[in-house]
Amino acid sequence: MLVHARPKARYPVQMPMTSLIDIVFMLLIYFLLTTNFMVDEGIKIKLPQARAAAPQTEETITIFVDSRGRAFLGEEAISLDRLFDRIKEKIGDKEDELVVVRADRAVILNKAVKVMDIAKAAGAGRLCLATEKEL
Rank of each mutant, 00 (worst) to 15 (best):
F84C: 06
I61N: 04
I43D: 06
K44A: 14
E76T: 12
D85Q: 10
I45E: 01
I45H: 00
G92Y: 10
F84Q: 08
A50I: 07
T60G: 03
E89L: 15
L47N: 00
F84T: 07
F64Q: 02
I43N: 07
K88C: 01
E76Y: 05
I43L: 09
I87E: 07
K44Y: 07
R51P: 08
I45D: 00
G69Q: 04
I43E: 07
V65T: 04
R68S: 13
D85N: 11
F84H: 13
K88V: 02
G92H: 10
A52L: 13
A50H: 10
K44P: 11
G69S: 09
L73A: 02
L73W: 02
L73G: 00
L47W: 03
T60S: 11
R51S: 12
K90T: 06
F84Y: 15
L47A: 03
T62Y: 00
E76R: 11
P55F: 06
G69W: 12
E75Q: 13
G92R: 04
A53P: 06
I78H: 05
L83V: 04
L83W: 05
D66H: 11
R86D: 10
E76K: 13
L47Q: 03
I45C: 04
T57F: 09
T62F: 02
E75D: 14
I63Q: 05
R68F: 11
D81Q: 11
T62C: 07
T60A: 12
D81A: 12
D66Q: 12
R82M: 12
K46P: 02
A71Q: 03
K90E: 15
E76I: 07
E58H: 03
R51C: 07
A53E: 07
I61Q: 01
T62K: 06
I87W: 02
E75K: 13
T62I: 13
G92F: 12
L47V: 01
I61A: 01
T60L: 06
I87P: 02
L73E: 02
E89R: 13
R51A: 14
T62S: 08
I87T: 00
F84V: 05
A53K: 11
F64L: 01
A53T: 15
S67H: 08
I45M: 01
A50W: 12
D85G: 08
L47D: 06
A77E: 12
A71N: 04
F72K: 02
D66R: 10
Q49D: 09
A50V: 07
A54G: 08
R70M: 12
A71M: 09
I87M: 04
A77I: 09
A54I: 15
T57K: 05
D66G: 08
T57G: 03
R51I: 11
K88N: 14
I45Y: 01
Q49I: 07
K44I: 04
L73I: 09
E89K: 15
P48N: 03
L80M: 09
F84P: 03
L80Y: 08
A53S: 15
E75T: 15
K90I: 04
D81Y: 12
F72W: 13
I91A: 04
